[in-house]
Computed example of a mutant assay.
Amino acid sequence: MTPGLPFRLARTSVFAVVCLGLGVAAHAFGGGTVGAPAMGAALGLSLSAAFPLSGRERTVGTILPLLGGLQVVLHLLFSLAHTASPIAAMGHLHSGLVPGLGMLVAHGWAIGLTALWLARGEAVLWGLLRRLAVRLLIMLPSVVRVPFAAPCTTEPPVFRSAVLRHVVSGRGPPMVVETT
């Protein structure tokens, strides 16, 4: 079952907004600023990267590398678009394209937790859709009566094995064989 375009776009949009929100929040937490053009470019990049993977259920193994790669690209994009003065750039946790160890650890934790959160949301969404599909399939026969086979009005023939036809069934206790 392949989902329709509106469903895929909704899932892609949620992923892109979460990815963008994580990148902007981490950049702002580190002391940087993000302009509207950089946010627009980052949103478009996130949407275009997430859309091809929105046709099926995404697991942590799919979400984590995608989210991590996008966070690296967004970090570079926001760092290049950083419009602060050189004095304000010194207060930023990193003063260039290469982040410090603290920023790498913070990004790693944030990416890991966000990937787990998104994967859990995916599992809940797809589980709900499966339950709804089963419920609809259960309710469908009560709404539409389609006979799958003609009802049988005669008794079916009884099949007996030729070997068992000649077996004598001795009911009761076993016979005692006397030897004299």
Rank of each mutant, 00 (worst) to 15 (best):
L43T: 06
G112C: 08
L97D: 01
P52Q: 11
W126D: 10
G61L: 08
F7N: 03
L67E: 13
M90D: 13
I138G: 03
T114A: 10
P99Q: 11
L66P: 00
V146W: 15
M1W: 08
L66I: 02
L137M: 09
L70I: 02
G100P: 07
R11I: 04
I87R: 10
L20T: 05
V73F: 09
G40F: 08
T83V: 10
T83N: 09
L53T: 06
L67S: 02
H75M: 08
V168R: 15
G170Q: 10
G23T: 01
S142G: 13
T2V: 02
G44N: 04
H92Q: 14
A133P: 04
V14Y: 14
P99T: 07
L76C: 10
T59Q: 09
L132A: 10
M175L: 12
R165H: 14
T154R: 15
V167W: 14
S48R: 04
S95N: 14
H94M: 13
S79K: 11
H166L: 13
S161M: 08
A16Q: 07
T62Q: 15
T179F: 10
M175N: 03
R56Y: 01
V60Q: 03
P151W: 13
V105F: 11
A25K: 12
M1L: 10
W126S: 04
T59K: 04
A49I: 09
A119T: 01
G69H: 11
L45N: 07
G108W: 00
H94I: 00
R130F: 05
V177N: 07
G170W: 14
R171F: 12
G30E: 07
L129N: 07
G112W: 14
R165F: 04
S13M: 12
A115S: 13
H107W: 12
L47R: 11
G91Y: 13
A150I: 05
L118S: 03
G55A: 15
